[in-house]
Design a binder for these strands. Structure first.
Lengths: 177, 177
DNA sequence: GAAGTCATGTAATTGGTTACATGATTGA
DNA sequence: TCAATCATGTAACCAATTACATGACTTC
């Protein structure tokens, strides 16, 4: 029961802010939600169809370009979203392959362990500037509308990324001796 | 291609340390790997069967108790594991429903946002002592075998959990004004 | 006119969860 | 003897990815 589909809520959430096409929804997920959620086209388009069927979103065929289809949230969709938002979160989960490979690294040797840590650190270092920039912008935008919520989630990214980098140092120190 | 099954490697990894039953594998995952991986019985038992079919593990029907079936890793299984361990990690991902509900919280109001943060903090506070105790024990055990790798992954848990708690404070401060 | 990106969608497959079914063992 | 836990396993279901198919628009 705890494993319901969340993508419909993600999409409704995005639509609650603005009218969007499937393609744009994918972009939003890959940028703003990147560090705590993911989804592919192969799940986004079918879910969009479902939302329309259930009366939670409306399809607007007449985009500025002929082949663009944009979606808006319906009042019923907004109600659905609000109900879900107020329910306690059921599942927060991590799947860190890096940690897995590290946990079992005894079998493969310390060099490969150090490589995994370095790869991980590199990925984080690449992404951190984007996140810091988001925070900078959001702090300027002040307390209107959804901005404080965006800020808080971006700060989560920053905090955890910084913790990851500190851990990489620490782990290196322990293993590389 | 990036989305191959990882559970076979998780199980082989655990078997590379010791002989285990399916039930014990589940327990290991729920304790030692808890904060970066998960799996259910419904995936563990079929995977165990697969591993035996592929010659990567052996089934030992004669446990101390009649209805216990334990598994050991074969040399081929060890080779398979080692190869995987040395390949770069492809996928590190988070699915934090809490963050999702926070990102869209404008629709539901600040009270529910603060509730989500508090629930999250509570969960972390509950789990942190166990993790700290693991670190304490592992630091005592020294540098033999897999211990440094266990230590490093446990420290990852501690570092991130502490970062989460700091973030909860910060987020509360921003939203609760 | 070619390359790249914007844009939508489907089919096959898979990895996994949930719920169920069953039964042995242990300890109060 | 009853409850809890140990222990294994299957079937139904589902969410999601990957790969594929298609075509319009933009820019050099």
């Amino acid at each position: 029961m705890a494993n319901e589909k969340k993508l419909d809520c993600v999409i409704l959430g995005l639509l609650s802010h603005e009218e969007l096409t499937g393609y744009e929804i994918k972009k939003r997920i890959d940028t703003a939600l990147k560090y705590f959620w993911g989804a592919s086209f192969g799940s986004i388009y079918p879910t969009l169809k479902e939302l329309v069927d259930k009366g939670l979103a409306d399809k607007n065929e007449s985009g500025q370009s002929r082949n663009q289809i944009s979606y808006t949230i319906t009042p019923k969709g907004r109600e659905f979203l609000k109900t879900w938002l107020r329910l306690p979160a059921e599942k927060d989960e991590l799947r860190y392959e890096t940690l897995l490979k590290l946990f079992f690294a005894d079998e493969a040797g310390v060099d490969s362990a150090l490589m995994h840590i370095e790869n991980f650190a590199q990925k984080i270092r690449n992404e951190l500037p984007f996140l810091l920039e988001s925070v900078r912008v959001l702090e300027h935008l002040g307390n209107e509308g959804a901005h404080p919520y965006y800020l808080v989630t971006a700060l989560f990214g920053v905090k955890t990324y910084q913790a990851y980098l500190e851990w990489c140092e620490e782990a290196n120190g322990i293993l590389d001796k």
